[in-house]
């Protein structure tokens, strides 16, 4: 019987420092030629045997076949141990798991990509996929906020994103340190929606960030005329298995690991115990 709990060794082939606390790791399977088939928005379970295992979204584009990337912020025991790894070190990987962003239904449409903090991670592969398949999609507006300018992730790619046709990148931060030169927005990410030129009637929105931020983004988008069912959000919960067995990520009747992490906004609104819930 095949054992889906077994992890496969993957080597870290490069590490890029995104912020003080966040790094992007490029991984390649060690033992066999294997291309990870996935949709942006899906995640892998990554293990450091002896430390633990956690769920991390895949941040590279699925068109990047030779290897894949994860962007990981140092927040706890496992991520601290991951933070200490170097190029050439081996991690265990199983996956991909979960639902991805509904890319097929976005074809021919304009797209809002709205993220907060490290919530840009599950959207970065999507952005790069859109750039690689630019003609499949309409106008794209990326609206990204973080607490401070030095907490923005994927900054090395912003020029490439801006240079792609019909893609705009709007940035905002909550606070700017004294003496720091900052020419973008200040305040919450919903402020950026005022700059949008997208017609909400023919658009989809892909949103990821803290739940409270997604709640207000979804509300602002619906006020602008975007249909609720055209808004998609990505949720997170603690997970042990990624396979709807351990029960940990359950949100009402939904498993974040297999029914999500990408959900349509009406789906999330119908679930309890989250900040987007209708009864909240």
């Amino acid at each position: 019987m095949e054992n889906p709990y077994i992890v496969e060794p993957a080597a870290i082939t490069s590490i890029r420092q995104e912020t003080d606390e966040t790094k992007t790791y490029t991984l390649k399977f060690v033992e066999r030629e294997r291309t990870l088939q996935f949709t942006p928005g899906q995640f892998n379970m990554i293990s450091l045997l002896g430390v633990g295992e956690g769920a991390f979204s895949i941040t590279s584009s699925p068109l990047q076949k030779d290897d894949f990337e994860h962007t990981i912020r140092l927040v706890g025991n496992l991520t601290r141990a991951i933070d200490r790894l170097a190029q050439g070190d081996i991690v265990g990987v199983r996956g991909p798991y979960g639902t991805g962003w509904p890319i097929d239904s976005a074809k021919g449409k304009d797209i809002f990509i709205i993220a907060g903090g490290v919530g840009l991670a599950p959207l970065r592969g999507l952005i790069n996929l859109i750039i690689e398949r630019r003609n499949d999609f309409g106008v794209v507006e990326i609206m990204y906020g973080s607490r401070k300018p030095d907490e923005l992730v994927f900054t090395s790619e912003y020029d490439k994103w801006r240079a792609a046709p019909n893609i705009s990148l709007f940035l905002t931060v909550d606070e700017v340190p004294e003496g720091f030169e900052w020419t973008h927005g200040r305040g919450v990410v919903t402020n950026l929606l005022g700059l949008s030129k997208i017609d909400p009637a023919n658009a989809l929105a892909f949103v990821c960030g803290p739940e409270i931020m997604m709640r207000f983004v979804a509300r602002s988008l619906t006020i602008r005329g975007l249909a609720e069912e055209n808004i998609f959000v990505s949720l997170e919960r603690r997970m042990e298995c990624g396979m709807a067995k351990c029960g940990r990520c359950m949100l009402g009747r939904a498993y974040i690991c297999t029914d999500g992490p990408v959900f349509s906004y009406p789906e999330v609104r119908s679930l309890p115990q989250n900040l987007l819930a209708a009864s909240f």
């Binding site: 002896g50 067995k245 351990c246 029960g247």
Partner: peptide
């Protein structure tokens, strides 16, 4: 009820 946790136990050598 079926919920579970997964933990690693290591020898001192790690």
């Amino acid at each position: 009820c079926f919920c579970f946790d997964i933990r690693d136990e290591v020898k001192p050598s790690r």
